[in-house]
Design a protein around this nucleic acid. Sequence first.
DNA 1: AGCAGCAACATTGGATACAATCAATATGGT
DNA 2: ACCATATTGATTGTATCCAATGTTGCTGCT
Lengths: 265, 265
Amino acid sequence: MRKLRKLSTPEPDDTGLPSVATLSGSIATSAEQLVASLADRISAKIVAGEYPPGSRLRQEALAEEFSVSRTPIREALRQLEVKGVIQHRPNQGAIVLAPNAPDIRDAYQVRAELEGLAISLAVEWITDEQIERMRRAQKRFAKIVDTLIAARKSNAKTHLKDVPNWVESNDEFHGVVIEASGNRRLKQVIQDLHLGFTRNIMLSALTMDGRRMRENVAQHEAILSAISRHDAIEARKAMTHHILRSGELAVWWLESQGRLGASGR
Amino acid sequence: MRKLRKLSTPEPDDTGLPSVATLSGSIATSAEQLVASLADRISAKIVAGEYPPGSRLRQEALAEEFSVSRTPIREALRQLEVKGVIQHRPNQGAIVLAPNAPDIRDAYQVRAELEGLAISLAVEWITDEQIERMRRAQKRFAKIVDTLIAARKSNAKTHLKDVPNWVESNDEFHGVVIEASGNRRLKQVIQDLHLGFTRNIMLSALTMDGRRMRENVAQHEAILSAISRHDAIEARKAMTHHILRSGELAVWWLESQGRLGASGR
DNA sequence: AGCAGCAACATTGGATACAATCAATATGGT
DNA sequence: ACCATATTGATTGTATCCAATGTTGCTGCT
């Protein structure tokens, strides 16, 4: 019943046109297509440090590693290039980008603003069920932090297997807020921002210091409290503070880590 | 409070590591490399409407059109996919994404927030020279609007050649603010946001109505005034209002245009 | 010994070839 | 006539090939 085309004016209706916001969610694009899968796997290895910043990614090596030809590898690299994970130099191939302090600062400043926007939108429409999810995430989060801190004091190795849970509950907490904002584009932009360095740096930075981890928990608590009361102003303030503080920590960690801190251009 | 400082101390650099913020500037990446050039040219044609939303982009056709093989075309398409300009369907190739009203709303909401952040940062460090550039851009902008409105009344065709100037002076105006913010990542995110639909929709939406164009000029005036006085609060307010208003216009135009109204949700 | 220039090698860039998959039409059965 | 199925054609996906470019190590000269 859809055919009845008017000559030049396209039909008004429900043409199944794809929406712009159908964009790939950058973070968890599971592999159904080879190139996407390769891009994910390569960037995962970069995040994991297997391909350290500054190292060259040779197409042939990657191709062999993943048992494919160079063609899909090259396409995946082109995608990583756009995502800002690698840099593509004319006839020299791709090199892994190194985050430096100014970059981190910039990214966190933007992220703080965006998550601030997200929560101020979320406050209005968040459901009780969503708040409950945040509570649960927060509970897990606090618990894991306790575990980590306790583990640190005795055995430095034990905590490593809890780190993924730490990351996950943190993501859940922030994820609910972003989801509740109802702005899909906002979600995508924040996820893009995450990609690459934010994640692994935070991880290293925070899990090094028990006090800071507890500080983090307290900040989440404040956010949760504000959003429960549907207090947009306070919620936003708490969220931006939380993110900016995390940014400071990341920068601090990066600089104390030294070495790959500052690259010119 | 605004403690994040950067440009003054670029930090001593030993490792020649590339910076993350060296990211491609999405908008004006001139063609030094084939794939980048192709991506630009293809997205330009999409923006121009030559490849309308929903249409399929066949690799062979593109290859012939640009006199290259399919290989670089495919890589360019992979990039456009990440940029959100097209959607890649498993064995069916690429189709041009169609912006719908919710997408536009979301994007403008984010953009308003980000340009708000940009100007509130810019207020502090903007130089007199930069303000002067904004003044000049604003002057050109107003002039062109006058021309366009005058042209509209007599001949509907004359104004077409002025539209690029309109766009350019507008970009210059906003560009200075973003540049003055000193946050490179912010610049990149905003540019990414622009890409695809923002631009062509605004163009169509605004150039249709003289009153709204003048409104636009007035808003720029308010922004310029606030930033000249280094009034962060007012500048931000004026900027977000300006962007949000433009977003409303874009949505309004899109919906009045009918067509691909709401596919999302 | 040190440096310039050159030659051999390694790697990327683009084109082509072939296989896999999807869309459309044709075909046969009910 | 209609629906299910098979066949064909078109298009994408991956692999391979060749050319262009960059890198490295050698040679010979000062």
